[in-house]
Design a binder for these strands. Structure first.
Lengths: 207, 207, 207, 207
DNA sequence: AATGAATGAGACTTCATTCAT
DNA sequence: CATGAATGAAGTCTCATTCAT
C-alpha cells in the first residue's frame, strides 16, 4: 500500500514505530473503554493516553470507529487463539466430553478480558459494529451444528438447527453472565458451573 | 394554592395537556431509540419528534436520563402487566407445566416491544440505568428460586441458587435471542421453541 | 388607567388584591436577590416565591427589569422615609453637628437592608438601572452643596462643588463599606465610626 | 515527549500562536465587558471578537469564569506594575508627602483602564471572583496601617486600624469615583483633587 | 384577571476531525 | 510523518416571555 522506502533499515524502523503507535492507540482505547466507559473515550483522550498526538491517531485510523473496530478485531483474535486448539479437540470427543470442553472453553474465552468483552458487546453504539461482535456466535453456532450432525446417531432426534441454537445460546449466556457477574470466584465454583451447564446441554441432547 | 375552579373541565384540561406532552415525549424517546439508536436521541430531536419544544421537555424531565428512565419504567410496567397474572398461575403448577408457562410468558414479554427491549437492555447501561433494567431479572430469579424450593422434592438434589441461575439465564437468553433475531416467525416456530426450552430446563431439573 | 368598575366594593377588593400581588412579587424579588443572588432570580422563581403564577407577574410587570426597578423604587422610598426628617434638621445645625447628623443618617440608611442595597448597587446589570440607584447620591450631593453654601462663612475658602464631592463621596464610602463589611458590630463601634468620619469631614472643611 | 525540532523558530511558532490566541481571548473579554456589559459577554461572542472559535476558547480556559479570572489577573498585574515602585517611595516619606503620593498613585491606577476596573469591581462579584478583586484593597489597607504605625509619633493618637480604614476607604472612593465620573478632565483638575484628598487625609491624621 | 403549559432563542460546553507548522 | 492548535457542528439545558384555557 505504501511505496517501498529506499533503505531497509529505515523502513523497518518506521514500520516498527508505526506498529508501536497503532498498538498503543488500540491499547489506550481498550483501557479507557474499560476504566472510564464509552463516553470518556474521546479521540483526544485516547491519543493522550497512548502518548501520541491526535494527528497521529488520524494518521493510522480514519475515524474513531475504525479504532474501535481494530480493538474488536484484536480482542477477537485473542479469543480465537485461546479457543481454536481446544475446539479442534472437542470436535473429536464424544458428546459429554465435547460439551464439557465447549463450556470450559467458553468460560476461558469470556475470562480473557471480561470487562472489555462486555463493553464491546453491549456498550458500543452499534453502527455496523454489531455484526463484528456477532461473527463469533455465528461461527460458534455453525461449528456446533456441524458437530451435532457428526454425532447425530448419538443424540435424540431433533431439528439440529434449533438444537444448536438452544445449546449455543444457553452456553454463551451462562458463561457470559457467570463471568461478568463474578459468579466464578473459585475453581470449585467454575467446576460447578461447568458441571451444571454440561448437564443442562447433555441432558437436553440425549434424553 | 389555586382556588377550585368553577367547572371541572377546565381544571382537567390542563392536566390532560400536561399528560399528553409527557406521553408524547416518552413515546418519541422510544421511537428514536428504536429507529435511530441512542446516539441520535438528542433532547432537541426528542422534543421535535414529540411535537413540543425543548423547553417543555425540560419542564417535565430534569435531564435526558430522566426521560430514558421514564421510558424504562413505562416498558417495565407494560411487561409486568402482561406477565403478572400468568406467573401467579405458574407458581401452583407442577414442574413441567410451570416451566412451559414461564417460557411462554418470557416470549410474550419479549414480544411486547422487542427492539425497545433490546435497546433498553443493551444500549442503555451507559446512562446508568443498568440497575433498573436488571431489577427484572433479579425478581425473576428470586421467584424461580422460591418456586424450586417449593418443589424441592420433585426435582433432583441440587444447589437451588445455582439451578435457578442456570434456568433463568437460559430461558431469558433463549427467548430474548429468539425474539430479537426473528426466530419466531410462526406459532409453530414458537411452539417448537417452547418445547425445546421446556425440555432443556425440565430435563436439567429432573434427571 | 383602568376603567372604573361598577361597584366600589369590588373595585377596592380587586385593588387590594392587585396591590397584595404586586407587593408579594416585589418582596419575593428582594428575598431571592438577597438570599440567592441575581442568577437565581428568574421570573418563574420569583412568581413561585410570591405565590402567584408567572402569568400574573407579567400582568403587573412588563418585564423582569420592571420588577427590579420597582424594587429599587421601594427601597429608595424606604430610605427616603428614614432619612428625610433627620436631614431637614441637619440643614439648620452648625457644621459639626450637621456633619455628625449626616454621617449618622447615612449609616442608618445603609443599615435598612444592607444586602439589598449591595445587590441593587453592585450586582444588578445596569441597563439604565444605574441612574436610579445613583439618584440618591446626586440628591445627597446637591443637598450638601446647598448646605455648604449656606455656611460658606463658617468654612475655609474652597470650591464648594469639589468639597461637596469630597465629603459626600467619603461619607458614602465609609458608611457603605462599614455596614457591608460588618465593621459596625456595636453601638460603640458605630459611635467610633461616626466620630472619625465627622472629624475627617469637619477637619477638612474647617482647617 | 516531542523530540526537539531542528530549528527553534518552528517550536516557538506554535507557542506564539497559543499565546496570541490566549491574549486575544482575554482582550476580547475585556472589550466586551467594557463595551457591552457582562450579560453580553457570552463565550461565543468572546471567541468571535477574539477571532477564534469557541473550541479554542475552551482549549485554554475551562470555563467562562476562568476567562474573567484571567482578565482580572491581567488587570491586577498591570496595576501592580504601575503602583509598585511609587508605593515603595511613599513608605519612606513624611506623612503629607506620603499621602499625596498615595492619592496620586491611586488615581494613576484607576486611570489604567477605568471602565474595566469598574466592571471588574462592581459587576463581577456574581462570578465569585470577588475575593480576587478585593485582594488589592486588603493589601492597600495593610500597607497603609503599617505606614501609620511607623509614623505613629507624627500623627495624633488614634486606633490605627480604624484610621487606616477611614483613609484607605476614602482615598479609594474619591479616586475611583473621580476617574469614573470624568471629574479629572485636566491636570489642573487632577491636582485639585490630589490637593483636596491629601488635605482631607492629612488633616484627619494630624489634628 | 389568573393560571401554568408552552415556547424557542441562546448560553455553555464537548469532541471528532482538519491542517498549518 | 508528527504535532497540537484550531475548528465548528451539535448537544444539553435555562429562562424571559407568550398564550390558550
Amino acid at each position: 500500500m505504501a511505496r517501498k522506502p529506499l533503505t531497509n533499515p529505515r523502513k523497518y524502523a518506521s514500520q516498527d514505530r508505526s506498529r508501536a503507535t497503532v498498538d498503543a492507540l488500540v491499547e489506550a482505547t481498550a483501557r479507557i473503554l474499560i476504566r472510564e466507559g464509552f463516553d470518556k473515550a474521546s479521540t483526544n483522550r485516547i491519543a493522550e493516553v497512548a502518548g501520541v498526538s491526535v494527528g497521529s491517531l488520524y494518521q493510522y485510523f480514519p475515524s474513531k470507529e475504525a479504532l474501535v473496530a481494530a480493538l474488536i478485531d484484536r480482542h477477537n483474535q485473542e479469543v480465537r487463539q485461546v479457543v481454536q486448539g481446544e475446539l479442534a479437540e472437542a470436535v473429536n470427543a464424544p458428546v459429554e466430553q465435547a460439551v464439557r470442553k465447549l463450556v470450559a472453553v467458553a468460560i476461558k474465552a469470556h475470562r480473557i478480558d471480561p470487562k472489555l468483552h462486555y463493553v464491546l458487546a453491549e456498550q458500543i453504539p452499534r453502527v455496523g459494529r454489531l455484526e463484528k461482535v456477532e461473527t463469533f456466535n455465528r461461527e460458534y453456532y455453525a461449528l456446533f451444528k456441524d458437530y451435532l450432525e457428526s454425532r447425530r446417531d448419538e443424540i435424540r432426534a431433533v431439528d439440529l438447527g434449533l438444537a444448536a441454537f438452544v445449546c449455543v445460546t444457553s452456553i454463551e449466556a451462562l458463561t457470559h453472565t457467570a463471568v461478568l457477574h463474578h459468579k466464578i470466584v473459585s475453581d470449585e465454583a467454575m467446576n460447578a458451573l461447568i458441571d451444571e451447564a454440561t448437564r443442562l446441554i447433555v441432558g437436553y441432547l440425549m434424553n
